[in-house]
Write a protein that binds this DNA or RNA. Structure first.
Lengths: 345, 345
DNA sequence: GCTCCTTGTGTGACCGGTCACATTCATGCG
DNA sequence: CGCATGAATGTGACCGGTCACACAAGGAGC
């Protein structure tokens, strides 16, 4: 119990040592759980810690030991559902491990700006988790200096993750493949795709899963429509697609895009799902309550964030084994926005 | 230019000092912009810093100076639009001031858990920004030990903010008042309210603004319906309200709730806005693209986050004057979901 | 009985910065 | 010309921990 109410500078291990009648090193041993401390001594030290309200100074710990027990998440945005959920997952796992979580937003995708932000984040010590679903994130991942522990959360593994620079991912390719097959199975001649900004110049995982499903079914492969991240982009893309009466099924890179597409179809008088079927990606909470409710693919972003932290934790503490990547399988959720292709034509 | 490619331990000010032929203290003066350094000396030091790729060690800085140039945001959630936007605003302002941003989620509202989390966050040094829109956040704000710099982001100022524990807020009361008046002006006899979980046992600002508008208009004051944060809660509340044919106007504590209400009305066959008008709160990005698009009150969460950081920054660096709280005025956005009350009855 | 190892504890240096103070040198002024 | 003054720089201690090592006491092995 701490009786003195007034603010004093916080107690250090030497204060605790003096109170317990031992040396500061013994206190250090107690707080680090070192075995060779006599039980009676340990008791006395713990009592002193409690009485003085001692808390280990994180700055001193980081300086002296080199370990900072912190991770920084680098992301292009904190408000998109997927990103925010990954962050929440990271935080959850980090909290359980008594790690601090930092956040650093990549405002621009411009190379120099990204590099500067990565340096700043690396300065905080600890490890980095980079959300690399977009160009800014991909650039950040590439700009991480050698020697800095980092885990990437990527759309797809472009090359097998190496031990010191591991990745986690959901199988977006498979997910897009499943969603596309679902739409084709409803009798649609083909499926159009409204893409999120691709993370690289190369084809994204979602795009390639969609394309493969079309190919296997021998369906025509229309060009993907480039969208943005938000509903506005989906709306613009939707207006374009609505003009073409041959379009009867649209897969969208995320639920926000799908929302914009739904709106565009409504505005142009095309009924969903009677005339056009729409499917999204992510299963954000609102999607189930839209009218029509949205067929989509549920992804476990929170789990992804937890897995990313687990991996990084393994890298940071040689002791903890590097866990495998338990990425959950995406799940197709069929709702009202997808239905049988209109009969005849 | 740093020619040696292999990883070495990062350069310290003593390394820089040796390279520049000065003492470490002079290097410290240069990096801190101290005036009394001869320009020629400064040049040499800067050249050495550049060559060695010197970066100030944040842990050592924090330990020696006591200032950690960091803020931690305490919040109950990172995925809700308002919370995530506030975080984004804080990060933006912090980045501009070269501050690191930490994030700490209050998973439970249970008192001991909240207190532990607050202690952990305070350990990181720097200041705290507490998002106190909900019970967990309010508890956290109360649990912050004296002496720790903190700024609260609150729904409404329960008491005038004091200098060392300032608050920022948007005028939710006024916003709810305006939204309610809008609905009344359309001829609705009264307006029902679906509430977000209140931050305190006392009436929330939104609730009280709504109530005042009803009172001034001499309209009946129905009991608010208790919702949750997400669309599911809105849906449940909407089903309840839909049963009552006298209900023609519904104000919701946030856009997610409104979405759930819209869905419930759709399911029960009540047309919006012809039979029932609905208004939300926050103007989340999807709201403009719903069908019908949602009448709502736009709040500047990002600006709120920026203001919170500015305030905290002022507290942390005595030099920087504590800026006034430039909270922007909420703005009513009228869209399709609100319309004239149904004629007759 | 002596060495040797183990257990428990203490001492000094160190991490990379900052701070308070000392020192040097050039300049201004009576 | 001598001395106070201020600019430019250096020295040592310190922040609060950790680490490597020294050292005392007690038991095992010969």
């Amino acid at each position: 119990m701490n009786v003195t109410g007034h603010t004093r500078s916080p107690a250090s291990i030497r204060d605790v040592a003096a109170a317990a009648g031992v040396s500061y090193q013994t206190v250090s041993r107690v707080i680090n759980g070192h075995p060779s401390v006599r039980p009676a001594t340990r008791e006395r030290v713990l009592a002193a810690i409690d009485e003085l309200g001692f808390r280990r100074n994180t700055a001193a710990l980081a300086l002296a030991s080199g370990r900072s027990r912190a991770v920084t998440v680098l992301t292009a945005n904190t408000t998109h559902y997927g990103y925010a959920s990954i962050l929440q997952g990271v935080e959850e796992a980090a909290r359980a491990a008594s790690y601090a979580v930092g956040i650093s937003v990549l405002e621009s995708a411009e190379e120099a700006a990204v590099a500067a932000e990565v340096r700043r984040a690396a300065d905080a010590g600890g490890g980095l988790i980079v959300i690399a679903y977009d160009p800014a994130g991909v650039g950040a991942l590439a700009a991480v200096p050698a020697g800095v522990p980092v885990v990437g959360v990527v759309e797809t593994p472009a090359s097998p993750p190496s031990g010191d620079r591991p990745w986690v991912w959901t199988d977006d390719r498979e997910a897009a493949y499943e969603a596309t097959r679902h739409l084709l199975s409803l009798g649609h001649e083909t499926v159009h795709y409204v893409a999120i900004p691709s993370s690289t110049r190369r084809t994204s995982a979602r795009t390639s899963g969609w394309r493969q499903a079309l190919k296997e079914a021998g369906a025509p492969q229309p060009r993907p429509v480039q969208g943005s991240w938000g509903p506005a982009g989906g709306h613009a893309a939707g207006l374009k697609l609505a003009r073409d009466p041959a379009v009867t099924a649209i897969l969208c890179g995320n639920d926000d895009l799908a929302l914009g597409v739904l709106r565009a179809l409504h505005e142009t008088g095309r009924a969903v799902p009677d005339e056009v079927s729409v499917a999204g990606f992510d299963d954000a909470p609102p999607s189930a309550y839209l009218t029509p409710s949205l067929t989509t693919v549920r992804l476990d972003f929170t789990g992804l964030g937890r897995a990313a932290f687990a991996l990084l934790h393994g890298v940071l503490e040689e002791s903890a084994p590097v866990a495998p990547h338990p990425v959950s399988v995406p799940e197709l959720v069929v709702r009202e926005s997808s239905g049988r292709a209109p009969a005849g034509r």
